[in-house]
Structure formats: structure tokens, C-alpha cells
Design a protein around this nucleic acid. Structure first.
Lengths: 340, 340
DNA sequence: AATGGTATGGTAAACGTTTACCAAACAGGT
DNA sequence: ACCTGTTTGGTAAACGTTTACCATACCATT
């Protein structure tokens, strides 16, 4: 059915080696006349090299994989775009895998991808366990972690300074006069969540505010989680006058809960999120948030991965980018950004 | 470096054929004792079959691809989830490709995927041109179109009744007393956009409202597009009292524009969207919209694809699901749904 | 005429599987 | 003892490429 390199060779009256040489821009010279004959044959037959066979021989697939915990969080598409742009520039295709925060799925994908010989991996782990990551390391496939770092592993990573971002956000709230500030966390074994919590606590500490454990609830990084967490926070005896959510999705869910309980934002409860997903800037939400440079994270991760794939093993282990506090209405200031 | 089937064979003291037979649950019988020896060897060496070699031999990859125009539109992740669930149940992996509404990228991906021998394709085309789709058809790779149908092609598709959805939405607006209703469209050669426009016009027609061309503007299916389109609509001499946007992202952008111009929703301008993406139900937006059963579309598309891959070529060409009008605050009614 | 170098092309051995075909061993029936 | 059929296992040929190695032809030196 499919036309192979043999068909081309026969049609052009040459050997398969010659055909292969013309399509691979080999250093081995081939006569201009023959080259044209081959090219004509290729054209005429509509030949396209079989990537599977080629992959088998060359032990490479010109593909990298991006593994994310939840593609329906707009944070990840933004990163993906950055990765794809760089990858495509260098002739790599990107396949996107979704783990839905599920460790088993994560392991399965890792297995699958390794068996398929992807050339590299960019990876936001669900992070409940690192055994499979160590194992990955042992198999010497180039990896860059993105957005979520894992401590104590010699795997490169690109992420934002989470401590700093949270710290600034809370400082702002404190400066606005808030003393009871809620914290809606994420999956607790994620290092990024711990960092954001650390920033939160540090800011409280510096302002000599005693942290109240009942103000700290665990979310799941999704809107429903934020919604439920906020409902919980609104029911405690002395509810917070401000909340900081460990990501925007939860912040948006929290805002929803606040509104539905009849309270006003920011007058009754101020809200700050983390990520700056596109929806955060909508006028009806105008969420104050700690922006992560998502696109840039993507491009940097991919660039780093390319280096590693090319054998440069000695780059920086960890690339830390600056987060930026974007102040919008949800915490009572009046700086606005224009556009969707 | 990597351990191959030969290593296993040697270790177990059998031939590669036998090893292959035990890992493939072949019909060819193998003695229980030998089977165990082989299994032990596999275990011990940590052998994992090489999918590239296997693919070359079997001419299959146990992978299907999902091609979408814009993964940052939450509509698509919802579909993807449905597809993945069914695909995984049947042992297929799903790779996700993003065309960013770019025809060239679409063609490139098609090429790439064919060369990689994906077993099937689920595909929301950018739809500006159908030549490559015909070509695809000629290459007999199983395809199901999703969400966006293309007329005059014998390719199966799963989508919602777009005419009906739009028609119901506009009827509702008319019943609420609106006579000047704006339409924010999408890429004009998309059949779904034409259908939604047709529903819009049909409803107007039945209410004996003369359609005003200046009320109809073209969007790009993204929030910024909706924002700009709405700004345009607000500047015409007699602005609309209601707008219908061909998708939710644009509707949200439009709401943003309305609010920023100091008008109220729904008192000054009512808004209706299409898709029912998760963000549409947030209390601060509460967008009235035509809901598409996204997850179900995903599962049905994948099921249909499986049939086709198994040789059942004679199923229904087109599977049309029911849209559902979800009435929320943005058009002045008071039915609300609970939760994020 | 012998030598050596360069340009050009072919042959065949990989890459790691699967599987059609063959073969040996053994059982049961005559 | 011989046939027949069933189990069980091995051999080797694919699958479609790439590429190391070899071969030829030609040209320029000596």
C-alpha cells in the first residue's frame, strides 16, 4: 500500500542508499543529476519516509512530551504554547499528556513515553511520590521539570520563586490593614505549595501576626476546591477579611463562594490568587494575583531541554524566574490592566 | 544499553519467538514452566518491549491523536477528557496536538501523524480549506471530526445541533422583549458558525425582525475578539439591547467590554454565549449560554473512532447531539446552577 | 604505467520486534 | 510398529529505514 524507499529507488534507477542520502542531506555526495532524478521520483510517487522505521534505526523520534496534571487549568496551555513554539523551531513535535493529578496515570505515561523513545520530557509532576522520578533519572532520558520542583533530585527545573510571590502578596494584604488572612492551599506534598505557605507565614511573622490554624485550609487546585474551602473559612467564628489562594482557579472558586454568601469583594473579603491565568483579568473578576511568566517558563524549559538533549549536562539545575504581583480590584486597590 | 528481547531469551534459555509469544498472549501455546522462566527473566532484567520496533512490525501504534484549534479554550479540555477516558479503557494513548487555528500547522500535524502511523484521528479542523481533509480520506486513516463538521465530505463527525442551539437562544431573547440583537460570529468559513448564524436569522425572521447587518460582526473565537467586537457594536448609532456570541470565550470578552463601558448586564445589554465552558457558571459572570455536552461528545467520538478502526465503515456519518440552553443572569432570568 | 585521491554509487548489516513455517517430541489409536 | 494429531519450541524472513564499508570510474601526478 504505502510507498517505500524501495519504490523510489526503483523508479529513479538507483539504490535505496542513494535515495536515503538525498532525503537526509547526507555529507556523502550525490551527483546533481541523480539527486534530481530521485527528487522527481519522490515527488511523483508522493513518497514520505516512514518515521517509525527511521526511529527504529536512529533511536530517536524527534518528539518531546509535555506532561501536565490538568490541562483544563488555563495555566498549562499558556506554558504549552511557549514550549511548542521553541520545539517546533527546532523540528521537534510536542505531545501533551494529562495526568489529572493521578499518580498512576503519571507512571503509566512515563512508561509509555520511554517505550516510545521520546527524545525528552517536560514535566509538571503530581508530586506525591518521587520514586518513579528517580527511576527516570536512572534511564538517562532528558528531563526538565516545570512549574513544580521536586527537592533532592538532580533534575533540572524551571519555575517561579514561589516563596517570594506569596510573601509579596501577603505583605500587600497586611499593608492594606488585614490581620486575619486565610490561606487556601493545594495538594500538601507539593513543594510549590509548601513554598507558598512559607511565604504566607513569613509575611505574617514579620508583621507579628500569630498564624491561626483554622484560617488555613487545604484545596485541590481546582475551582470547586476553592469554593468549598472558602465556604469552610466563612463558617469559622472569626472569618478572615482576606484570603490568599495557592492558585487562581481556587481563588476564582473562593470569590464565587464569597459572592454567593452575599458578601462583597473586596469590601468584606479581599482575595488574592496565584498564576494570573487569562480569566483573572476579566473585569467581573479582576483578581489580584501573583503572575507567573507562563510563556517564558515554557520557552526556557524547552531551551534547557534542548541543551540537555544535546549533551550539555552541566547547566543550572534550577532556573528561578521572578513572579510579579498584579494588583486588581479583588484586594481593594484600583490599578487595572486593559484588555482580555 | 537497553535490554532487548534477545537478552531475555538468552537468560531464560529459550528463543526470541517464545519470549514474544508470552508477552503477546499469543494463541500459540507455551508450556507453563517455560512461561514462568520467561516471565522471571523479564522481571529480573526489567525488560520492556520496544514500541517503535513493535510498531514497525505490526503497523500500528496504539495511539490516537486529538487535533484541536486552541487548547486554551476550556471547551477542548472538556472534550479531551471524554476521549481519553474511552481511549485508555481500550489501551490507546492519546496525543494532543494544537493548531492554534493555523491551517499550515494543521497540515503539518496531519503529515507528521500519518508518518508516525497513528491508528486514528479525532479532529476539530480550523476549516478554512478542505483539500487536506480529502487527501486524508484517500489515505484511509480512521478519522472522526468533532465539534466542527465539514460539509460534503464522507467523514464521520460528532457535534451538536448548532442551528437549533442558536435558534433557541435567540428565541429566548426575543421572548424577553429584545428586538435589536447583536451577533458576534467566528471564523466565517466554519460550518458551525454558519449554522449558528442561520439559527440566529431564522429566529429573527420568525419574529418578523428585519436583520440589521451592522449588528453582525465577526469575532475570532477568543475573548479579545469578543471584547473588540462588542466595542464595535456599542459604537453604532442604535446599539443592541442583547448580543449572542458564537462561543463563550467571546461572550465573556463581550461582557468585559460592556462592563468597562459602564453599562449593566443584563439591564442594559443581555448576553448569551455558546458552549457552557466551566467559567461561564461563575457567579460573577453567570453567562446564559447554549451548553454543548462536551464530555459526551468526547466519549462518543472516541467510541465511533474505535468502530471505524475495527473496520465498521458503515456507521452513521454524523452524530448530532442536543444542545441545551442554560439560562443564567446575563440575559435577565433568574435560574441559577449551583457550584463551580 | 603506476599510484593515489576524489566523486559517486551499491551491498548488506543493522535497529528490535512479530509471525509464518518447520520440526521434534509425545500421546493415543490402530 | 506405524500413522495422526497435538504441544511446544526454534529459524528466519519480514517491517522500512540508515550507514559502514566496499567498488568503480575518473582524474591528476609522478
Amino acid at each position: 500500500m504505502a510507498v517505500t524507499i524501495w519504490d523510489v529507488a526503483k523508479k529513479a534507477g538507483v539504490s535505496v542508499a542513494t535515495v536515503s542520502r538525498v532525503i537526509n542531506h547526507s555529507t556523502h555526495k550525490v551527483n546533481e543529476a541523480t539527486r534530481r532524478r530521485v527528487l522527481a521520483a519522490i515527488q511523483e510517487l508522493g513518497y514520505q519516509p516512514n518515521d517509525v522505521a527511521r526511529g527504529l534505526k536512529k533511536r530517536t523520534s524527534r518528539t518531546i512530551a509535555l506532561i501536565v496534571p490538568d490541562i483544563s487549568n488555563p495555566f498549562y496551555p499558556a506554558i504549552a504554547r511557549g514550549i511548542e513554539d521553541i520545539a517546533n523551531q527546532h523540528g521537534y513535535a510536542v505531545v501533551l499528556c494529562n495526568t489529572y493529578e493521578n499518580l498512576t496515570k503519571e507512571r503509566e505515561y512515563l512508561d509509555l513515553l520511554r517505550r516510545r523513545w521520546v527524545d525528552g520530557l517536560i514535566f509538571a509532576t503530581v508530586g506525591r511520590n518521587t520514586r518513579h522520578l528517580r527511576w527516570l533519572r536512572g534511564h538517562s532520558i532528558p528531563v526538565v521539570l516545570i512549574a513544580r520542583d521536586v527537592e533532592g533530585l538532580e533534575i533540572g527545573s524551571v519555575l517561579v520563586d514561589n516563596f517570594q510571590g506569596a510573601y509579596e502578596a501577603i505583605r500587600r494584604l497586611i499593608r492594606l490593614g488585614h490581620r486575619r488572612i486565610g490561606f487556601i492551599g493545594g495538594p500538601p506534598n507539593l513543594h510549590v505549595v509548601q513554598e507558598r505557605r512559607r511565604g504566607y507565614l513569613q509575611a505574617l511573622c514579620e508583621a507579628e501576626i500569630e498564624p491561626d490554624p483554622s484560617l488555613s485550609v487545604e484545596g485541590n487546585f481546582r475551582a470547586e476546591g476553592g469554593f468549598e474551602a472558602m465556604q469552610q473559612l466563612l463558617q469559622i467564628p472569626l472569618p478572615p477579611s482576606a484570603v490568599f489562594a495557592a492558585n487562581d482557579l481556587m481563588a476564582i472558586g473562593a470569590m464565587d463562594a464569597i459572592k454567593r454568601s452575599g458578601l462583597r469583594i473586596p469590601e468584606d473579603v479581599a482575595v488574592v490568587g496565584f498564576d494570573d491565568i487569562t480569566f483573572a483579568s476579566l473585569v467581573e473578576l479582576t483578581l489580584t494575583t501573583v503572575a507567573q511568566p507562563k510563556y517564558k517558563m515554557g520557552t526556557m524549559a524547552m531551551s534547557r531541554l534542548l541543551e540537555i538533549m544535546r549533551g550539555k549536562r552541566n547547566g543550572p539545575r534550577k532556573i528561578v524566574l521572578e513572579p510579579q504581583l498584579v494588583v486588581r480590584d479583588s484586594c481593594g486597590a484600583h490599578v487595572r490592566r486593559i484588555g482580555g
